[in-house]
């Protein structure tokens, strides 16, 4: 029997909220799919669109950018910038014919371990039927 496709997710997590949220999920022994490669960044606002595309280029099937809730940014307004920028990336991806579902953004605070696990579970469920991402992957 063929193995079930397990998507690889690259998650850019803000150090102050989402990364701490994922830690909370871990230390609380919550169960969630092991498909995520977390990368801690100083702020969701520091995630360049190039990081996102590069992740797809280097083999990610899905990319998640997660930051603090509006108003909670450690740097006051980084997540607001991220919100704008990522809206544009999402629109452009859709326009080019890439599956927009492969790219998600979320607000996860340091207290929201449960939300983090749910987001990952949902994301994996969305990605499984889509299959491997090959359009932007450097392979040839």
């Amino acid at each position: 029997m063929a193995e079930e496709f397990e998507p690889k997710i690259v998650a850019f997590l803000c150090k102050w909220c989402s990364s701490a949220g994922s830690d909370l999920a871990g230390v609380s022994r919550m169960q969630y799919p092991p498909n995520v490669v977390p990368i801690t960044v100083m702020c969701s606002g520091s995630v360049s669109p190039l990081y996102i595309l590069s992740a797809f280029n280097k083999g990610a099937d899905g990319v998640l950018v997660s930051g603090c809730h509006p108003g909670d940014c450690h740097y006051i307004k980084g997540n607001y910038y991220a919100r704008r920028r990522i809206a544009l990336v999402k629109e452009l991806m859709e326009y080019i014919g890439l599956e927009p579902d492969r790219f998600q953004m979320s607000w996860v605070s340091a207290a929201e371990g449960i939300k983090y696990t749910k987001i990952i579970k949902d994301f994996v469920n969305i990605l499984k039927p889509l299959g491997p991402q090959t359009n932007l992957r450097r392979s040839q």
């Binding site: 669109p49 190039l50 595309l53 590069s54 280029n57 452009l92 991806m93 080019i96 359009n135 932007l136 992957r137 450097r138 392979s139 040839q140």
Partner: peptide
């Protein structure tokens, strides 16, 4: 294709 797409998207 992958590299050219990324160049143009970026």
């Amino acid at each position: 294709p992958s590299e050219t797409f990324i160049y143009h998207i970026i």
